[in-house]
């Protein structure tokens, strides 16, 4: 946008989003088909391995897997545009139903985790910046560096070992005790361990980012002016610095969503928590194509959306970025997203 037409600007963004989704669906569809493996096994179970060749051919034809990949892709796109994503081979029901039954659990875990991380990392960051290079800051930094190095799955194992296996005070797997799905207390009880890990796994990274942002802000000239004017440290920090840091923090948090989501996936599989994470892991390993596609589009969509949100926030703050300069937020590499 050239600063003139907001409709064009947001229209371009929306168009970009749909284009990205289309490319994404294409790529995932082809990669999934490239991978060797037998989708029939996930539909018929063990029986698929003992099928006679003609039975096999009939089964493949029934699932529509004997056409060329491009034909399959076009068929899938047509269905998807009408809202029909096909059936899951493993669960034999509509993909949307399968996901609908699980997505609440993931949202509960990831969403609550996100809010906790959002609040606590801000508090920790401010605390560290306030005591810069003094005792509390150094201690928190040391602890933070160590916690950020602990693999999430390992921490889960240790916590399960301590609290579930040895002390028997917290459940080590699942989202609820069988038959007590509606019981909120039971739910929270099951959430404690996975939530602890979601939060500790990401908290420090974002706290550190906000700490550094505030430290940068403290070094700017207006702080000197404010101090010369006689404002108190607290007032400068909270009224002025924090206000300037906030937009950058929002865009960091937008980028954090995919990372937290990726972490949630791993934690779900360790705790065998019935959410999207375990589902996508299963579907990718056992060639449940339709389910895999929707899950990939779902999480890919969230990632693209969050990246765009971060970029938009940055552009609104600082119009110079639009001329192609980097937004200065470094990506975390690895399994996070």
């Amino acid at each position: 946008m050239n600063g003139k037409n907001p409709y064009l600007y947001y229209g371009g963004k929306v168009l970009g989003f749909f284009l990205s989704m289309a490319v994404l669906s294409f790529v995932v569809f082809y990669i999934a088909r490239l991978a060797p493996g037998d989708p029939l096994v996930s539909y018929y179970g063990e029986r698929a391995e003992k099928m006679a060749p003609d039975e096999r051919a009939a089964a493949t034809g029934k699932l529509g897997l004997d056409d060329p990949v491009s034909v399959q892709y076009i068929r899938w796109i047509r269905g998807a545009l009408r809202g029909d994503f096909g059936i899951s081979y493993k669960y034999k029901t509509d993909v949307t139903q399968v996901i609908g039954g699980r997505i609440g659990n993931t949202l509960l875990l990831g969403g609550t985790g996100f809010i906790l991380i959002f609040v606590f990392s801000l508090l920790l960051g401010i605390l560290c910046a306030w005591f810069e290079d003094r005792f509390p800051d150094r201690v928190i930094c040391k602890i933070g560096t160590i916690t950020s190095c602990i693999p999430e799955f390992w921490l889960s194992l240790v916590l399960i070992l301590i609290f579930a296996v040895n002390l028997h005070i917290l459940p080590g797997s699942g989202a609820y005790t069988a038959g007590r799905e509606g019981d909120i207390k039971d739910r929270i009880w099951h959430l404690i361990l996975p939530m602890t890990i979601v939060v500790t796994g990401h908290l420090w990274y974002y706290a550190f980012m906000i700490r550094n942002k505030i430290l940068e802000e403290i070094r700017s000239d207006y702080v000197l002016l404010a101090k010369a004017k006689g404002l108190s440290k607290r007032r400068i920090m909270f009224r002025q610095c924090l206000r300037n840091v906030m937009p950058a923090y929002l865009s960091i948090m937008a980028i954090s969503v995919p990372h937290i989501m990726g972490g949630t996936y791993i934690i779900e599989t360790v705790f065998s928590y019935p959410g999207i994470g375990t589902l996508s892991y299963e579907s990718a390993r056992f060639q449940d194509y339709n389910l895999l596609m929707v899950l990939c589009m779902l999480s890919g969509g969230v990632v693209i959306l969050c990246n765009m949100a971060a970029q938009t926030i940055n552009e609104l703050i600082d119009p110079r970025i639009r001329s192609g300069r980097d937004n200065g937020i470094s990506e975390v590499s690895g399994l996070g997203g």
Partner: peptide, 21 residues
């Protein structure tokens, strides 16, 4: 933009798929 799209596939899934390939 292309690389952003490629990397928007969740890392774990991408690895599973690539491993399979």
């Amino acid at each position: 933009r292309l690389s952003e799209i490629l990397l928007s596939v969740p890392g774990l899934l991408l690895v599973v798929l690539l491993q399979a390939v």
